[in-house]
Design a protein around this nucleic acid. Structure first.
Lengths: 124, 124
DNA sequence: GTTTCATTTGAATATTTTTTCAAATGAAGG
DNA sequence: CCTTCATTTGAAAAAATATTCAAATGAAAC
């Protein structure tokens, strides 16, 4: 019964630790903070299993074409291409055309900004 | 027909840019580098839309209980709890019990190590 | 002990993301 | 131009992840 009153008031539990005003304020911050949304996109792009491997390989090789990546990763060219598109969307890689082949490389400044972990031997 | 030969040899395209030896070497690096796997897990934990919001809120409030988080995020308590479990798994948050309530807070060192973006006003 | 209530858990469902497959594009060489 | 072939694209299938719902746990108050 108390439970029902509480739910009617819109709270998930009897005694919220913070004030309703604070709740509203934080909700608003969440909506307004578009940088958070962008960060979530980049983190997501970085965290895809295939994508992180691609970044690692480009870190090691400096330039690789799509089919080389597919060979190394033992994935279809199409799957790699789809993932490269995501990486491109967030400016994490660059593309350069040489005849029929397209070479991809890291967009170092961007990657380093969001993945400054080289010192900890992750991308080494 | 050439295509077929190439595929028989196990390559995705006619002229791999790098040598087969290099391909094998890179494949091996990928397998051996378990730090990469761990990083992928943490990035994934950070990038979940609910989870990143939770981290943001804990950054702003320093301590919040599960139902406060659910209230602010307008999600079920259960959904929040499930996501907190992921954050706990990677040591991104800490839990403290006070009577019936469990308060969560950021594990600052870990979060900062992987999300050193405060300076760029993301978590501010 | 029994009840209360915040939280957790597990399994089922819903949703999102990846991967595959077939077809399209587009630059280069003939 | 016509062919070749690396790459991209779009839609369908497969896989992973998130969310819900109902039930369980567990600490504290009674």
């Amino acid at each position: 019964m108390l439970q029902r009153t509480v739910q009617h008031l819109g709270f998930k539990c009897l005694g919220p630790t913070i004030t309703p005003e604070r709740i509203l304020r934080l909700r608003q911050e969440l909506v307004e903070n578009e940088e958070l949304q962008r960060l979530r996109g980049i983190l997501h792009a970085l965290s895809g299993p295939l994508r992180l491997k691609i970044l690692y390989l480009l870190h090691r090789e400096s330039e690789l074409c799509v089919c080389d990546l597919a060979d190394i990763l033992d994935e279809s060219v199409s799957a790699v291409s789809h993932q490269l598109r995501v990486l491109r969307k967030y400016n994490l890689v660059r593309a350069r055309r040489d005849a029929k082949t397209i070479f991809y490389s890291l967009n170092e400044p961007v990657v380093q900004r969001y993945l400054r972990l080289e010192k900890e031997a992750v991308l080494v």
